[in-house]
Nucleic acid binder design. Sequence first.
DNA 1: TAGATTCTCTGACTATAATCAGAGAATAAG
DNA 2: CTTATTCTCTGATTATAGTCAGAGAATCTA
Lengths: 293, 293
Amino acid sequence: MELPLVEQVRSFNRTMTERIGVLNDHFLGRNHPLGEARLLWEIGEHGAEVRELRSRLGLDSAYVSRLLRSLEGQGLIVVETSGNDGRVRIVQLTEAGLRERAELDHRADVFAQSLLEPLNESQRLKLVAAMAQVERLLIASQITIALADPKSSDVIWCFEQYFAELGKRFEAGFDPARSISAHAHELMPPSGLVLLAHMRENPVGCGVLKIHENAVGEIKRMWVAPQARGLGLGRRLLEALELHAREARVAVLHLETNRSLIEAIQMYQGCGYQEVEAFNDEPYAHHWFEKRL
Amino acid sequence: MELPLVEQVRSFNRTMTERIGVLNDHFLGRNHPLGEARLLWEIGEHGAEVRELRSRLGLDSAYVSRLLRSLEGQGLIVVETSGNDGRVRIVQLTEAGLRERAELDHRADVFAQSLLEPLNESQRLKLVAAMAQVERLLIASQITIALADPKSSDVIWCFEQYFAELGKRFEAGFDPARSISAHAHELMPPSGLVLLAHMRENPVGCGVLKIHENAVGEIKRMWVAPQARGLGLGRRLLEALELHAREARVAVLHLETNRSLIEAIQMYQGCGYQEVEAFNDEPYAHHWFEKRL
DNA sequence: TAGATTCTCTGACTATAATCAGAGAATAAG
DNA sequence: CTTATTCTCTGATTATAGTCAGAGAATCTA
């Protein structure tokens, strides 16, 4: 690989732009303009709310409305008002709409097969493995980490997921009330902060830093969503927390963890955390770590 | 073809469609509509013929003309009549056009870097390696093999490349006149045929089958262009020739080769060819092979 | 319960990306 | 030298993909 990294990425982008063009022509081939096809696809077999479609596809409400009117005119969808909220409208595919969607599905399959077909078995496996790798890493590179409000719904959701996971993994379950607390007011600067990782609007990980008086920081609630694991996100979160800690003149970071969280323990050690004597009486902890910054 | 492979390819396509959309918005971001930007890019630093641009981008002549008029109006290009052929027009970028193109170039770089930036060193290397692999195999899957007219310029070009390469690789050079002949009239059905491999209009490999009376076929002029090597194209060409041989009721295939063509010899053996006694007096040959079909 | 917000829709408008028919000039082929 | 072909251009027209302003109804918030 003599090409500089950026050159190789650009070359890849050129190749893919071309291929995606072919894919779109394929989709487009017969039938609908691309906008309608995408919408038809996103509605899915079980229907969807219009507002949901709009935000998923990132389209203007006037435009979506027009696309829906067109699909309705073709008898591919029915639109009805939601029972729960009279403002919200629900789109469902009709029989004809389902057939049309199956046709799109089939075309996408045919296209995918046309890429594999000229290759031999070993090349196919290599291609698919490399695609999975590219996809994974591109997704990883889309994850952003930012300061978050501990009272926001995304943070609350992440903490719930975190507690639920501890409940499953600890031998004796987990009761947040028994554990050392970290309430919202402690998690706002200057006494602490929450970092949240997002993947396209969706929260996929969190981490908390509490700042104590004696230049001691405490890391808590490190969690990565299952679909975002194996991408080095835990380490990224930890490093981002350390950066904030340094800025707050923290000299030593503490954290404690349960023996069932094996990957976490390995990550802490890999990031330079040393196991030390228990520095608190957290009932769920088996290992206590510290790192001097 | 097992479904998981197709599923992974489709998932990859979805991810890439999204990324390419972002790339286009980036390009588009400021400045020009996408069509103009693509054209500006394709004109290149040294200018180009309009007809060449049209065929490279696959656009209608009226449309290209209009795009050129628009770019001309913005002072980014100048169009002049070719000296050789009064019908052909040549487009050149002006100073401003070159700056604009450099800007596009820069944006593509920034985009590529934005993919790499959030990753750590080892992830970057993995991503780039996987991209190279995907690109290579997708390009391989774009190569088509078809019967070709031995008098066509593509075939003549491939044969010239083949002879030039033999001249370089054989210890004593290579003189086509001394070698056993294969003239155009022998390479048309029913007495023979030429297969040509194309990658997006460009010839990248060839192979010849001569059919003799006693159900004996002869493989000659197997060549793969340097940029298409390592993709299994030689084997694909050979297998395609064998298919044609079977259809022509050939029972045994002969071929001879020079000891310096090591990869070729390995490929023949890997495809089931057995080394036999010399069956002709080809002066450049060291190994003679046959395969019963 | 008033006022703000959310959700969807319509009307009016624009930019982009084409396509088709045909004209005019230059060149190639017979 | 005539005819066919190639290359480019203009005019007329279309489809696609939006954007913006605002209206009307339902719902949420203070």
